[in-house]
């Protein structure tokens, strides 16, 4: 696990309800106790980070202890900020009587599908790039798998989309240059009606601004993509339970992660029944669990695995998280490669 903490960015992901937030919290605490300044970021729209740490955390970086800060990204607030910026720049361009129309129109964008995702991604990308100067380690407690995979694939999709936009602009600009050659002599003499020519001046500055905006976007996406796929910087940890559906979903998630070249560092099998738990009911469940554990061992043989037991009490506050952290550290003490069952 020490090798894990040498990375700068860790994603903790998995199906809903498998214990991602707990694991992310325990890892963050472990890293912070080990002397690394750590920022724990929740990207799940239904935040539970504050509940696990038993203190309110919001859209601002909140200190949670020595070396440790927490942040629950609020996509709505991010989108709000973005939309406000656009409104401002639009209003600087049109007559005041249009302000109402602009407000109405831009409001539609707020509710269009994908806006929240884009706002969330934007903040994550900013954090991945900027927070490196302030923190040794960034841990993302992500939303359930499907959502996160989509999020991780967005930089690639968006970068491609922006490349397309830029190629249209480039073609238009080249055609504009050709047009200038044809109209060069004329523009010096008198203004005979030129097609398109009379708009050349404002077009140049507009082109410049469009290009700048698109370039800034593209740079950001490419940087995020670079960091995301760099195995020495980033690690994805998959949390699952020894049950049928989490196993199936983990398989799909791993396929997608490898498709997008996101490096997966290992797997945490959470909430196993403790061996000393008694009763016929639990014995039966344990038999079933053993089957699934075997399936996990076979299916994910190539991955490092950590096994954690179900606790007799809720995960609440720093003490329990430390307990979990210690259980993980114990298994990681030796060679991490050979997975030992507890």
């Amino acid at each position: 696990m020490h090798r894990l903490f040498d990375r700068r960015i860790i994603f903790v992901g998995g199906k809903g309800g498998v214990g991602k937030t707990t694991i992310a919290g325990a890892l963050a605490l472990m890293a912070a106790d080990g002397g690394r300044t750590t920022l724990l970021v929740s990207t799940d729209p239904a935040h539970s980070l504050g509940d696990v740490f038993d203190m309110p955390i919001g859209n601002e970086e909140t200190p949670l202890g020595p070396n440790l800060s927490g942040l629950e990204i609020d996509p709505e607030a991010e989108a709000e900020r973005h939309i406000a910026t656009v409104k401002m720049s639009m209003k600087s361009l049109v007559a005041p009587k249009m302000y109402g129309a602009i407000d109405r129109q831009i409001e539609l964008a707020r509710h269009s599908p994908g806006t929240m995702e884009a706002a969330l991604l934007e903040r994550m990308a900013d954090l991945m790039v900027d927070a490196r100067s302030r923190f040794d380690l960034l841990i993302f407690d992500t939303a359930p798998s499907g959502h996160t995979i989509r999020l991780l694939s967005l930089p690639e999709l968006m970068a491609a989309w922006i490349d397309g936009m830029m190629s249209y602009r480039d073609r238009s600009r080249r055609l504009g240059e050709v047009l200038k050659v044809f109209s060069r002599d004329q523009s010096k003499e008198d203004g005979f009606g030129m097609i398109g020519g009379s708009q050349d001046e404002p077009d140049d500055s507009r082109d410049g601004r469009i290009k700048e905006i698109l370039m800034t976007r593209r740079r950001k996406f490419h940087r995020a993509r670079e960091l995301l796929t760099d195995a020495s910087t980033t690690a994805f940890l998959l949390v699952l339970n020894a049950e049928r559906l989490p196993i199936l979903e983990s398989k799909k998630t791993l396929d997608l992660l490898s498709k997008f070249n996101v490096p997966v560092a290992g797997m945490i099998v959470n909430r196993l029944l403790p061996p000393d738990a008694g009763g016929d009911f639990l014995r039966e469940r344990r038999l079933q669990e053993d089957e699934y554990r075997e399936e996990i061992d076979q299916t994910f043989a190539g991955l490092r695995r950590i096994y954690l037991h179900l606790l007799p009490h809720d995960v609440h506050g720093v003490e329990t998280l430390r307990e979990i952290g210690e259980a993980m550290a114990e298994q990681l003490g030796g060679a991490f490669g050979a997975a030992k069952a507890p």
């Binding site: 989108a79 720049s89 964008a109 269009s112 884009a118 469009i210 698109l214 976007r217």
Partner: peptide, 10 residues
């Protein structure tokens, strides 16, 4: 859409 929004003013 989120990204084209900032091009709309121009």
């Amino acid at each position: 859409t989120y990204y084209t929004l900032e091009l709309q003013p121009i």
